[in-house]
Amino acid sequence: MNASTIGAAVGAVLALTWVAFGFWAFLFVGLAMLAGVGVARLVRGDIDLHGLVQALRGRRTSS
Rank of each mutant, 00 (worst) to 15 (best):
G11R: 09
I47G: 05
D48P: 04
W24P: 00
L34R: 07
R60W: 01
D46R: 10
R59G: 10
G51E: 13
D48Y: 12
H50C: 07
A40T: 14
V43C: 12
M33D: 06
L52M: 12
D48H: 12
A32V: 15
V43K: 12
F26P: 01
V39Y: 10
A12G: 07
L42I: 15
L27S: 10
A35Q: 01
L52Y: 10
R57F: 05
A20L: 13
V13N: 02
A25C: 08
A35C: 05
L16S: 05
F26A: 11
F28Q: 06
F26K: 00
F21L: 14
V19Q: 04
W18R: 00
R57T: 06
L49V: 15
R60I: 08
F23H: 01
R60Q: 03
V19K: 00
A12V: 15
G22L: 06
V29C: 03
G36S: 14
V13R: 03
R44S: 13
L52P: 01
R41W: 14
W24H: 01
L14E: 04
T17Y: 02
L42C: 10
F28W: 04
A35N: 02
V13E: 03
G11S: 07
L31Q: 05
V13S: 01
L16P: 00
T17I: 03
M33L: 15
T17H: 01
V39G: 07
A25E: 07
L56R: 00
L34T: 08
A40N: 13
L27C: 09
M33K: 08
V37N: 11
W24Y: 02
V29E: 03
G45H: 11
R57L: 11
D46K: 11
G58R: 01
W18F: 08
W24D: 06
V37A: 15
G38L: 15
A20Q: 06
A15Y: 05
R60M: 02
L56K: 00
A35V: 11
W18I: 09
G30A: 13
G30P: 02
V13W: 00
L34W: 05
L42G: 10
L42K: 08
A20C: 07
A40K: 14
A15C: 05
L16I: 11
Q54T: 01
L31Y: 04
A12F: 11
L49E: 08
A20P: 00
F23N: 03
A15E: 10
L27P: 04
I47R: 04
L27D: 05
G58Y: 02
R44W: 06
R57I: 06
L56V: 09
R41D: 14
G45E: 09
G11K: 12
V53E: 02
R60Y: 01
D46N: 11
